[in-house]
Amino acid sequence: MNRARVGVLISGRGSNMAALLYASRLPDCPYDIVLVASNDPEAAGLTLATAEGVPTFAHAHKGMKRVEFDALIDEQLRAADVEFVALAGYMRLLSPEFIDKWAGRIVNIHPSLLPRYKGLDTHARALDAGDRAVGCSVHVVTAELDDGPVLRQIEVAVLPGDTAETLAARVLIAEHQLYPRALADYVMRDSTPEAKLARVREIALALPGAEETTSHGMPCFRVQGGKMFCYFTHDHHGDGIIAIIVKTSGPDEQAQLIDQDPDVYYRPAYFGPSGWVGVRLDTPDTDWDHVANRIELSWKLVAPRKLLGIRDF
């Protein structure tokens, strides 16, 4: 399993960072913590991360404009080949520029049942409102504070005599359970066969005259009840591969593609002799623009002239 590379941003003790880190040590965890960064060089969480062998970066934000500091953090994340960013007690508002660069790849944990009690003092506000339950939420980070789509939540009961401090301590236990699970689900959301098929379906059905059917036990796409131009395969005949199978101009092009990039292209069983080629979708970095191009080229090889005229090549 290719694990997602996660960078964690902290400002203090880093207890949620620790929960993410120790969960990443489990053999079935789909992510690794590859960097812990902070806006406070004295943050206690940095000491823990260093002791656990995780690279760290710290720089005081005072005296720097928000966009300048965020550019510094962005530079460190990219140098570590980070794919996702997890905020864990990071007490800095992120600049729109940073959020745009990492759109859809930043998550945060917040100590309330969003959309209730965005911002600070969540437990005191819940107690003042007489709530019987509070909780925590993991959400996608967007430009508006604590407003991104909620991924998961856990509810925590309010006990008689609770204070903001006692409630915060109990919610923190729930946070440590919730965050690793929510992060694991999120980094895997585009890696499942179902997600990859949905992406292939979107590409294929956008082509003129394309329709979906089933053949050889696989979802496939053809042109107006006629010729096939794309098959989606997942562990077909027990090969363990997630891929598409598309047409080429013939065996020569098939062989050339496989020879040029054997990690992506392969000769599919039963289809290979006629020049079809497999394009793997389970590589660490699937190039979806390239996949879309191969699907369109395959469609072009079988589409009738009237449809070819619709498409602007």
Score class of each variant (00 low, 15 high):
Val200Tyr: 08
Gly275Lys: 04
Ile173Ser: 01
Ser11Leu: 04
Gln177Met: 07
Leu172Lys: 02
Gly272Lys: 06
Pro268Asp: 05
Glu253Leu: 10
Gly53Thr: 11
Pro41Gly: 07
Val187Arg: 06
Ala157Met: 04
Ser112Ala: 05
Ile106Val: 15
Ala198Glu: 15
Gly209Pro: 03
Ile242Lys: 08
Asp289Trp: 07
Gln153Tyr: 03
Leu93Cys: 06
Ile10Thr: 01
Val54Cys: 15
Gly135Pro: 01
Asp235Ser: 13
Gly225Lys: 10
Gly226His: 13
Ala60Ile: 10
Leu72Val: 14
Val34Gly: 09
Ala19Val: 01
Glu155Gly: 06
Ile258Met: 12
Asp239Glu: 14
Asp289His: 14
Gly238Arg: 03
Glu144Ser: 03
Asp40Tyr: 12
Cys230Ala: 15
Ser137Thr: 08
Thr122Cys: 01
Ser112Asp: 00
Asp185Phe: 07
Gly12Leu: 02
Pro180Asp: 04
Ile242Gln: 08
Ala204Leu: 09
Ala19Leu: 01
Ala174Asn: 02
Val34Lys: 08
Leu87Lys: 02
Ile244Trp: 02
Thr233Phe: 01
Ala292Gln: 10
Ile99Asp: 07
Leu26His: 11
Ser15Tyr: 07
Gly250Lys: 05
Pro273Phe: 07
Asp100Tyr: 09
Pro111Gln: 05
Asp185Asn: 06
Ala4Cys: 12
Asp282Ala: 12
Asp74Lys: 14
Ala80Asn: 14
Pro149Arg: 13
Thr163Gly: 10
Ala206Tyr: 15
Ala88Lys: 09
Arg170Met: 02
Leu172Ala: 08
Arg181Gly: 02
Pro208Glu: 12
Asn39Pro: 09
Arg267Met: 10
Ala206Thr: 12
Gly240Thr: 13
Ala124Asp: 02
Val67Met: 14
Gly7Leu: 02
Asp32Gly: 14
Val36Asp: 03
Leu297Phe: 03
Glu97Asn: 10
Leu21Pro: 00
Asp70Met: 13
Ser24Val: 11
Gly161Phe: 05
Thr142His: 04
Phe221Lys: 09
Phe69Asn: 03
